[in-house]
């Protein structure tokens, strides 16, 4: 009977340990390199950092530099911006001074607002809002979307004295403001609505404006009646 020598497992163990060690070392190097690379990227500014849009007020095509310039002047001069507790609104002389613009050019600026705004029409010598005027105002007001400012440009027709018409257009602007305050119940409204009253002295509307969205679409419209009005519109410009 010959004693058989039991084969050794040591060579297999050595190879196994070596394989395990190589695998572990590879893992450690991989982890170290991956973290080191991330660390380097962290401290190196991205060459092309993805741009993220920033929330802002709406800005549409009609917001030309000239339009914005006039609006900015209105905002600053008529108490909307930086005028806490100060006067509210602009009268004809103010507009003439700060706008530095002709009547036609002033009206031209507002032409792109034809589809956005509306014309509230009044009876002669009156500043009361009828039901259709109220509805138009509400429709306009609740379609704010991304606009920051709401403009009210009140006028009076040629009939009557300059002083009387200036006061009348002021009352018309205020009638809009009071109604909006009533329906909107917005504590920010004072900083949102810009009031301009032009009497019959500046930027009278031509009868072309009779085709605009108005509170009395079925009534007779002419150069006189279209100026017994308050043009109202949100303005979708970043100022």
């Amino acid at each position: 009977m010959t004693a058989t020598k039991r084969p050794s497992a040591i060579p297999a163990a050595v190879v196994g340990v070596a394989a395990g060690a190589v695998a572990t070392l590879t893992v450690l190097v991989m982890v170290q390199v991956a973290v080191a690379n991330a660390k380097e990227r962290l401290t190196t500014p991205e060459a092309q950092k993805p741009q993220v849009a920033v929330a802002a007020d709406a800005e549409v095509a009609y917001c030309t530099p000239r339009f914005k310039q006039v609006l900015e002047r209105v905002l600053h001069s008529c108490g909307l911006v930086g005028g806490e507790g100060g006067r509210r609104g602009c009268q004809p002389s103010d507009v003439k001074t700060f706008a530095s613009i002709s009547d036609e050019d002033f009206n031209e600026l507002f032409t792109p607002l034809k589809d956005r705004g509306g014309v509230v029409l009044y009876d002669e010598g009156k500043d009361d809002l009828d039901e259709k005027a109220k509805k138009l105002l509400e429709d306009m007001w609740f379609e704010r979307k991304g606009a920051r400012y709401f403009f009210v440009v009140a006028r009076a027709s040629k009939s009557g004295s300059v002083d009387k018409n200036r006061a009348l257009s002021h009352r018309r602007a205020n009638s809009v403001m009071y109604y909006l305050k009533d329906v909107a119940k917005d504590p920010e409204i004072e900083k949102t609505v810009g009031l301009l009253w032009l009497g019959n002295e500046f930027a009278q509307l031509s009868k072309d404006y009779c085709t605009w969205n108005s509170s009395r679409p079925d009534s007779k419209c002419n150069d006189d009646s279209v100026n017994r009005s308050a043009f109202v519109s949100w303005v979708d410009c970043r100022l």
């Binding site: 060579p11 297999a12 190879v15 196994g16 340990v17 394989a19 395990g20 060690a21 695998a23």
Partner: peptide, 21 residues
Amino acid sequence: LGAFAFFAGFSVYLTLARGRS
């Protein structure tokens, strides 16, 4: 990662050792 590296090495040992393990 660490555990599988160990298991890989041990598996190599068992594969090579066969009946000697």
